[in-house]
Design a protein around this nucleic acid. Structure first.
Lengths: 203, 203
DNA sequence: GTCTATAGCTCGATAGAC
DNA sequence: GTCTATCGAGCTATAGAC
């Protein structure tokens, strides 16, 4: 009997999640808190009152659990990138894309967090590593406009990084006391959009 | 006999480093590449043609090696923070401090990288965790000016985060092809300074 | 100051009962 | 679908020789 089974995220009412979903949910929490290599399967099993062996019915390996967490995010980004043209001709269309991109990240913010916390990628399955590398390269390309100066390219890169960070670190860190998350997001998005538009004007 | 002992960073000519320094050097490389929990002591020992047991003459635990890597950085930040006033009255003095702060981070950039890569802090010794938390809070305070609006506070936070990121990720990622690191740094610093000054003007 | 040897444990993963 | 039981490997850390 395990006394300490605190629920770290809000589960569905009635707890109708499948075991697979429960495992992914708990694993996400632990991977964010202790990192992937820092989280043994025994910890995931313990929080669910499962045994380690039970996990292997649903996933073929520890890395497979990680893939299960990240895949929905990566799939959605793939879809978004497929719809995008080779390059955006103007700042307006670029911003629309980047905003949509940020919404995708937000809708999978837990998975984004897992990636951000475990920024040493060496233990990631190769397939996942390649997809992430492609996403990074492609979104950077799309953050650029034709004939941009070197200076504005650097700025666009830095601003894109800011956009990524905003998804991950709003909840608990670096927050102005008493400010609602929505308000903060609004301010940051405005700041990002204005800074990006300045790079469009300067070219 | 270990054949594979590639040197990952440039060592001093003549290899006059003490064993302690060698261990810290190699451990830094591996902690950045595979993370702290992802790096066994055997990997550190193997790259030095030491045995695991030999490491325990110089350090009392794995966490102690980590402390050895981080302490010089944390000590230097402590010194800088001791010299700072409670608050900076104007944007000029604030920027001077933040620039000095960035130079400190740069002069210990490998240690900063170790911290950034292992952003899940749960395995850090408590003493180190507390020092880092204090540094983060204090530098954020010092990035603020008196009577700043909420909006400008958020911007200052985001910009400070940008400054941190610039220290860590210049070398290998998100770089404009063919651009020298010095040029990039110059552009980013200018961007940061201008953005920060805008928050001073807006209050 | 570095070694061999090993304790004591936990890891990821598997076999097979129910 | 989850269990008990267990394997072999790898882990941190220690004891004690040299």
């Amino acid at each position: 009997m395990n006394v300490k089974t605190e629920q770290r995220t809000i589960r569905q009412a009635g707890d109708k999640q499948s075991s697979r979903e429960k495992i992914l949910d708990v694993a996400t929490d632990l991977f964010v808190e202790h990192g992937y290599t820092g989280t043994p399967l025994s910890a995931i099993a313990a929080q669910l009152d499962f045994t380690k062996a039970a996990l292997y019915y649903h996933f073929k390996s520890k890395a497979d659990i990680l893939s299960g967490i990240l895949s929905p995010l990566l799939d959605t980004i793939d879809e978004l990138l497929e719809q995008a043209p080779e390059r955006f001709p103007d700042a307006q269309q670029r911003w629309e894309f980047l905003y949509n991109y940020s919404q995708v990240l937000l809708s999978h913010s837990r998975a984004v967090e897992v990636l951000a916390i475990n920024s040493s990628n060496s233990w990631l399955p190769d397939e996942i590593k390649e997809r992430i590398e492609y996403h990074r390269r492609r979104t950077m390309e799309l953050a650029m406009l034709p004939d941009m100066s070197d200076e504005d390219q650097v700025k666009a890169i830095v601003i894109m990084d800011m956009l990524h960070r905003e998804i991950v670190f709003t909840d608990d860190r670096m927050v102005v006391p008493g400010m609602k998350p929505e308000r903060r997001r609004e301010i940051v998005y405005d700041f990002i959009r204005e800074a990006l538009e300045a790079t469009a004007a300067g070219r």
